[in-house]
Simulated assay, not measured.
Amino acid sequence: MEIHQITSARNEKVKRWRKLSTRKGREEFGSILIEGEKLLKEAVCAGWQARSVIVSDEGIQGLEHLSHLDGVSIYAVYPSIFSQLVDTQTPQGIAAEVMVPVNGAGYQIRGEKPVLLLDAIQDPGNLGAILRTAEAAGVGDVWLGAGTVDPYNPKVVRSAMGSLFRSRIRRVDLREAIPELKEQGYWVVGTNPRAERVHFDCHYPKRTAILLGNEGRGISAEIDSLVDDRVRIPMPGQVESLNVSVTAGILLFELLRQKWRET
Rank of each mutant, 00 (worst) to 15 (best):
I6A: 02
R16S: 00
W17P: 08
R18K: 14
R18L: 14
L20V: 09
K24D: 11
E27Q: 15
F29V: 00
G30F: 10
L33E: 01
K41G: 13
A46T: 12
W48R: 08
W48T: 00
W48P: 00
S56G: 12
S56V: 02
H65Y: 14
L66F: 12
L69K: 00
L69C: 06
I81H: 10
L85Y: 03
V86S: 04
D87S: 10
G93Q: 10
I94A: 07
A95D: 02
N103L: 15
G104K: 13
G106E: 08
Y107G: 00
R110P: 00
G111W: 10
V115D: 02
L118I: 08
A120F: 00
Q122F: 01
P124G: 03
G125K: 05
L127I: 01
G128K: 08
I130N: 02
L131P: 03
R132N: 09
E135K: 15
A137V: 09
G138E: 06
D141M: 12
G147A: 09
T148A: 05
P151T: 10
G162K: 14
F165Y: 14
S167L: 12
V172N: 11
R175V: 15
I178T: 10
K182P: 03
T191W: 10
A195T: 13
H199K: 05
F200E: 12
Y204N: 05
P205M: 05
T208I: 07
L212E: 04
L212R: 10
S220D: 14
E222N: 13
I223T: 14
D229E: 15
P234C: 06
G237Q: 11
Q238S: 11
Q238M: 04
V239P: 06
V239N: 07
V244C: 08
V246Y: 03
A248S: 11
I250S: 05
L252H: 05
L252Q: 03
F253P: 03
R257M: 01
R261I: 06
R261L: 07
